[in-house]
């Protein structure tokens, strides 16, 4: 394989007697879109939480490029260049849309509390830069008109896009999206698909998705991994997954025969 961005090897997450993630291996190349699919409770979100540092995996290793990030706290992993969104939207609700995106840039910031108190020139300039960049990012996701509104006032679809904008603001190497099209109608799903493709093509962000919408997954992914009961039961291109009998039995079922 060419340069691999994320590599996960032998990852296991045990909660008491439950192995939510069981010896999972996978690699993701730079510039690709990889999707994880599987029935509810298959361990997809747990896998995400291990990678982004919310859980410390019981066993296994996670590397971002050469760097071992296994067991680091979430803020260190974010600083290494992994950003994520959440299954149920988690914005900073009481802050403005712009502030949400400003906060997304945390890993690029240098201002310390002393700079903030004394209002140093560097701190002021950085605030200006952050505001400018935030507007540019909001324009990229077509939300700039709402910059001064409170985040939780936005309609649902816009909140999803704002969450992506916040993740994008950190200029991540890898963005993990947990069900980006959940609760969306077909036209919104199509918009999201376009947005994610633009993320990869124009912003050079690699994407790791959890997704249930099969048409969406098959259309956008370079590579798909199927989880069931915490194990990888299949892994390959969309074409390979579509025709894999084990996958059809475990998960795809009727939707593949449509």
């Amino acid at each position: 394989m060419s340069e691999s961005l994320l590599s996960v090897s032998g990852l296991t997450m045990q909660f008491g007697g439950l192995r939510a993630v069981d010896n999972v291996d996978f690699r993701q190349d730079t510039g690709t879109i990889v999707s994880i699919i599987g029935p509810n409770g298959a361990g997809k979100t747990t896998l995400f939480n291990c990678i982004s540092g919310f859980y410390e995996p019981t066993e296994g290793e996670i590397h971002l490029e050469e760097r071992r990030i296994t067991g680091l706290p979430p803020n260190k992993i974010a600083r290494a260049g992994i950003a994520r969104t959440y299954q149920n939207i988690r914005l900073f609700r009481n802050m403005t849309v712009l502030e949400n995106v400003m906060l997304g840039q945390e890993r690029l910031l240098r201002t310390t509390w002393l700079g903030s108190i004394f209002g140093t020139r560097a701190a002021r300039r950085e605030t200006e830069e952050v505001v400018e960049r935030s507007h540019a990012i909001l324009a990229f996701v077509d939300l700039d008109a709402t910059a001064d509104r409170q985040a939780d006032e936005l309609p649902y679809g816009d909140q999803r896009r704002l969450e992506i904008a916040r993740a994008l603001a950190s200029e991540p190497r890898l963005m993990m999206l947990d069900e980006p099209t959940a609760g969306m109608n077909p036209s919104e799903t199509a918009d999201t698909e376009r947005l994610l493709q633009r993320l990869r093509d124009e912003r050079n962000v690699s994407l790791l998705l959890i997704e249930h919408d099969m048409r969406f997954v098959m259309g956008i992914s370079d590579h798909i991994m199927v989880l069931n009961y915490g194990r990888t039961i299949a892994s390959g291109t969309p074409q390979e997954i579509r025709t894999n009998p084990e996958v059809i039995e475990a998960y795809l079922g009727s939707s593949a025969q449509d």
Binding site: S52, G53, F54, P73, P74, N75, I77, A78, R79, A83, R84, Y86, R90, L91, F92, R93, N94, M95, E99, M102, L103, G104, E106, R107, L109, T111, T112, W113, G115, S116, I117, F118, G119, A123, E126, T127, V130, R166, S170
Partner: peptide, 28 residues
């Protein structure tokens, strides 16, 4: 000054959602 500063933003992020604040890189 603190209220308007980037440090102030970090505090407010923790107030709104500490877990997410940590996950965007803030050393909570």
């Amino acid at each position: 000054r603190l209220d308007l500063s980037l440090t102030g933003r970090r505090w407010m992020a923790i107030r709104d959602d500490e877990t997410v604040a940590n996950a965007i890189g803030i050393d909570t």
